Amino acid sequence: MCESPRINCVLLVDDNPSTNFLNKKTITATGLVKTINVATNGVEALDYIHKRGKFKDKNCPKSNIIFLDINMPKMGGFEFLEHYEKLDEELKADIVIVFLTTSNWEKDKLKAYGNGFINDYIEKPLLEEKFIEIYNSYIENKVTT
């Protein structure tokens, strides 16, 4: 555990409240993150990025890491990526996107890694060690706060 948070914000995009609760607990235990926010589907995640809808006028710092589920109502992970691709470069800059999913289908992994915005693909549950590994791989040498 570190002395002060080094990651400004993590956005969890998952429709399962229990999963979000456990992921928040896991991430908080690392001591690396200042703010953790939740969107329950891809539409809400886009609203978060644009600071609109239920996120308008709320504390919505730019996410350094987005953990994205594949299967969600309204808009799943792959559909979110189609919309994300069209965003202004400024909105996408310096964001690490990780699929965090129960899917171990090879076709999903290949599709994910074929997308230029996916940095990693991990199967649930999110473990502290895996979060720290993602931090070390993608965030550690960047200024994030």
Rank of each mutant, 00 (worst) to 15 (best):
V38G: 09
A45S: 03
A45N: 03
N23E: 00
D14S: 04
K25I: 09
G42H: 10
R52K: 15
N41D: 15
L22W: 13
I49D: 08
T35A: 12
G53K: 08
H50Q: 09
F55P: 06
L22F: 14
S18D: 15
L46A: 01
N41Y: 05
T30W: 00
L11M: 03
K51Y: 06
T26P: 02
F21I: 10
T19H: 11
N23I: 00
L32Q: 09
G42W: 13
T40I: 08
F55D: 10
R52G: 09
A45K: 05
K34G: 03
G42Q: 09
T26W: 03
N37V: 01
I27W: 07
A39D: 05
A29Q: 15
I27Y: 02
N41F: 04
K54Q: 11
K34M: 12
D47K: 05
T35C: 15
L11F: 06
V43N: 08
E44P: 12
G31H: 08
N20M: 13
E44M: 13
G42M: 04
L32V: 12
I49M: 09
G53E: 11
H50C: 06
V43Q: 10
A45D: 11
N37K: 07
N16S: 02
A29Y: 11
N23Q: 07
G31F: 02
T26M: 04
T35V: 11
L32C: 08
K51T: 13
D15I: 00
L12A: 04
K51L: 06
K51V: 12
